[in-house]
Design a protein around this nucleic acid. Structure first.
Lengths: 339, 339
DNA sequence: CTGAAAGCGCTTACAG
DNA sequence: CTGAAAGCGCTTACAG
């Protein structure tokens, strides 16, 4: 089946190829009546302009890129990324932009992908996830002048636009809630320490614990996997002065932690309260359902996409603060049982 | 920063653009020494051929498409898709192919996306997921002559190539294992009935239960969500002659089912054995860990990608059978407690 | 083995 | 408001 070209449309409409181009792109240069006739013919013969030809003529590629730097099993189990992608996609496809996805092994590979995409003119811009405090991707993208939006922050984004959520405030709210329930020994199982948002949460945890005089608070580090979350929980619950509440940096580790508590014969929430960051349907699958910090991740992705299209269009764009995660109390938190 | 073009490389190397093209694409027409010199210069100035120009010149777009027809929250919670994508991606990027992702609302929208991709020459081929018994996408793709690989089957794929796994055998093995443990009343919580693989599993379930004389077997339908899985489980466990074992069509429903059993005061596995399809890290997060049917999903994706590249290359390609899921017994299955 | 040239299908100044 | 034409950066027959 031969694909229709702009020449086919022009011939049928009895106009020049230029006129068809103007009509399709909503440019002035054709009368409204002609435009309508051209659009009708294009629809009739199923014409869509070749993205290659369009990109080559200096117009945009109508595609943006997302590189993900996580192993397959983590990508699979974390609902976060797929929800983010869904939201990004919804916004992009409404504007006829395609999303190009690439899984990379490390930052160097990711930067190489950006360079290739740029050289190939394959994308008009990119999203940057999992920002680090010293992130080499930021200067690399600045040097390429490839439009980019960082999904994260605030801070450490150089001259790049970003969308972010106030993680410090969400963490403080959580600790205050646990203290209000009567907890004093609160632990936190953190995610990868190299990630900026982990650092932001850690600093906030230290700050709020200091402010509230919780001198037995402790943070242990993990990597977002269930295995590590379970191990960290075992360590915490084996200490002589074990915590009465644990805040986990993601849902997967929280569920693993719940399982460990049950395995060690502890009642949740009687002996141990559990809070999960990243509220997802997973949190309501377990028994008891987990108290969790959640926000609308597809919307976050949609906002990032809108922001990136703005950068690509050359509009002035800076940082955009998204909603702060809110706490949904469920069965996994309660006042500590007196021992 | 100006992007280097093939002309820049040609000028530096003192050869024609054609020679550079031949050198880059491994074609005959340049001496080996010249080829090496050209490649070195290309690497030095960071040249990658414009994908747009390349696609326009009749070469391939070096991109393939994947349309996903599931709502955001299901995509997020099912590890299957992200693991599949990881595997697809690994294979594609090794061959310098990009993956274009689009989330669609229904089959009509998906077909429209295929038509647009085809008209735009945006992709060289596509993957088809979630095959149905009467699937309109198959004739649509045949008509477009857009290279495609169905991830699913066997059967109902028309003239399209496919990769598939023997779900019937895996189901039979599971039922036989439960019967060997002493179970006679086995129930199944199925996924969406419109999907071919659900039908294949259902037919296999009926067949094996008939063969083994399990006349109290029952299947209830669900939609892969935890909510529906929980509801189906409540219904099953409330019946006077409740099953002693339940097989779930995905991990999420199985975890929800475990939670419902615990909530109803039943011991797992003493009062109820549970088997999950789609073994994923989730199955090991809960207590007890779930006996599950698993296989290597990233590898499945990689095989699908290799198959699609073969179709694109015009090589003869038919159906490719992937490994059959195998049962990993864990703590959620045991002989039924005598009542 | 190498070079000059046509052509892919668009967009966009430039004339009319 | 419309048409003819150049040009984007490649690939690939066609001559030499």
């Amino acid at each position: 089946m031969k694909r229709p070209t702009i020449a086919d449309v022009a011939r049928r409409a009895g106009v020049s190829k230029g006129a068809v181009s103007y009509a399709l792109n909503g440019q002035r240069g054709v009368s409204e009546a002609t435009r309508q006739r051209i659009l009708a013919i294009a629809a009739e013969i199923g014409f869509s302009p070749s993205s290659a030809a369009r990109a080559l003529s200096g117009a945009t590629a109508k595609a943006v890129g997302l590189a993900l730097c996580r192993p397959a099993r983590i990508l699979g189990i974390e609902p976060f990324f797929m929800e983010l992608i869904s939201g990004v996609e919804a916004e992009l496809s409404a504007r006829s932009y395609a999303l190009t996805l690439q899984v990379v092994a490390d930052q160097d590979a990711e930067i190489a992908v950006y360079r290739r995409w740029w050289a190939e003119r394959r994308v008009d811009g990119v999203f940057v996830c999992d920002l680090r405090t010293e992130d080499r991707r930021v200067p690399a993208l600045e040097e390429l002048q490839l439009p980019a939006v960082v999904i994260g922050g605030p801070g450490h984004t150089g001259s790049l636009a970003n969308v972010w959520s106030d993680e410090a405030a969400a963490l403080a709210e959580t600790v205050e809630y646990l203290v209000a329930l009567g907890h004093r020994r609160i632990a936190r199982v953190g995610g990868l320490p190299a990630l900026l948002h982990t650092e932001i949460r850690s600093d906030a945890f230290t700050e709020v614990c200091g402010r509230l005089g919780l001198d037995e608070s402790v943070t242990v580090w993990s990597d977002y996997t269930g295995e590590e979350g379970a191990r960290a929980t075992r360590r915490l619950l084996s200490s002589p002065n074990r915590p009465t509440a644990v805040i986990y940096d993601n849902d997967v580790m929280a569920i693993a932690g719940l399982s460990v508590a049950q395995e060690m014969g502890l009642q949740v929430p009687g002996d141990l309260s559990i809070v999960a960051w990243d509220d997802s349907p997973l949190c309501q699958l377990v028994h008891p359902p987990l108290t969790a910090l959640g926000r609308d991740i597809p919307a976050y992705g949609a906002h990032a996409a809108r922001q990136l299209l703005r950068v690509i269009a050359g509009e002035p764009t800076g940082g955009l603060q998204d909603e702060t995660a809110h706490l949904t109390p469920r069965g996994s938190t309660a006042p500590p049982r007196v021992r």
